[in-house]
């Protein structure tokens, strides 16, 4: 006797077995428990049954195979059909998410339910704020397990957009806290870029991450540059900060050469003497800044130093760039 067969609650349901046939690819040693639960799931889906026992069944199936792409949809439609309070479901989901760090279906499920209650929520600013805070608290818990979980960061963007947290002090502060923990957390850098440069209050709608946005106030560009420069000082060989600096300059329509002096703090190349290089990324930055200014010999020297000495792992790449530079010289 299984969990369902012979159980009076499920007496009326005839499970639909899986028709495997011959020649099955990637056959898995299913447990009896799994086979039985799936048979009952197919049966309730065929009958379009949305009931409390279906919630139990879908929970069971998810515990056995969280990547089952339709069980989540079926569970969502059951919750909506039964008008189950969403906060109960969120509580359950929090546990499942903590146990299934890699699962993505759970985040779509979460967003389906949030979309559903959003119209009601948004009519009550205090409730909406409390809800967004609870989501942030949960994500903080997820970040304790893995501060770079891609799905959680995707959800974070969704929450920022949905509840318009672009101007939220708390949001920016929490990113700063994560970067204080780990200045190399590229996910946090990336989120900061999104927060600052997709803020509908002062950016051009639809402006790409890689293009100049003239609507962004100069003060904002200055603030972001100062933040990233401080981080580069803290850990000169942290590529995240250097990429961020380049990204901010491009958003602001500023030339790399405007930060030549700053990058130069990490790179000393005295004439005839031994050079002192503290960051390969600074050298890379200078190569591009010098090329931009037309100082091609200096740029070439920087690329040569990278390939020969300070970033040997990418020697082929630096040589290729030197070749492109020679193309520009002609």
């Amino acid at each position: 006797m299984g969990r369902y067969e012979g159980n009076p609650v499920w007496d009326d349901v005839v499970p639909i077995p899986q028709e495997e046939g011959e020649g099955a690819l990637a056959q898995i040693a299913y447990t009896d428990e799994y086979v039985e639960a799936m048979g009952y799931l197919r049966a309730v889906m065929a009958a379009k049954e949305h009931s409390p026992r279906v919630l139990d069944l879908t929970e069971h199936v998810i515990s056995l195979n969280a990547a089952h792409y339709t069980v989540w949809l079926y569970r969502a439609s059951t919750i909506l059909a039964l008008d189950i309070p969403i906060d109960k479901e969120l509580e359950w989901m929090n546990e499942v998410a903590l146990e299934n760090q890699k699962n993505y279906q759970i985040w779509t499920h979460r967003q389906t339910l949030i979309d559903h209650i959003f119209p009601t929520l948004s009519s009550d600013p205090a409730a909406a704020q409390a809800f967004a805070d609870a989501e942030s608290a949960f994500m903080a818990e997820m970040f304790e397990e893995d501060a770079k979980n891609y799905h959680v960061w995707g959800h974070r963007q969704y929450i920022v957009r949905k509840f318009n947290l672009f101007d939220s002090d708390a949001e920016l502060k929490s990113i700063e806290a994560l970067l204080h923990e780990d200045v190399r957390n590229n996910s946090a850098w990336s989120h900061r870029f999104f927060l600052v440069f997709s803020n509908p209050a002062y950016t051009t709608a639809g402006s790409r991450a890689t293009e100049h946005d003239p609507k962004i106030p100069d003060a904002m560009i200055d603030r972001e540059l100062a933040f990233a420069q401080a981080a580069a000082h803290e850990a000169p060989q942290n590529q995240s900060a250097w990429e961020y600096i380049r990204g901010v300059l491009r958003k602001g329509g500023r030339e790399l050469a405007t930060l030549e002096g700053f990058a130069g703090e990490f790179v000393r190349i005295p004439e005839g003497g031994e050079e002192d290089i503290r960051s390969s990324h600074a050298l890379d930055f200078l190569a591009d800044a010098w090329s931009e200014k037309g100082e091609l010999d200096k740029a070439d020297m920087a690329l040569r130093l990278l390939g020969e000495k300070y970033d040997r792992i990418r020697k082929n790449y630096w040589d290729w760039k030197r070749g492109l530079l020679r193309g520009a010289k002609v």
Partner: peptide, 15 residues
Amino acid sequence: SVLPTGYSSNDSSRM
């Protein structure tokens, strides 16, 4: 041969 039970979470992507 049959894949171990641990692959159950890949059941939906057996293809």
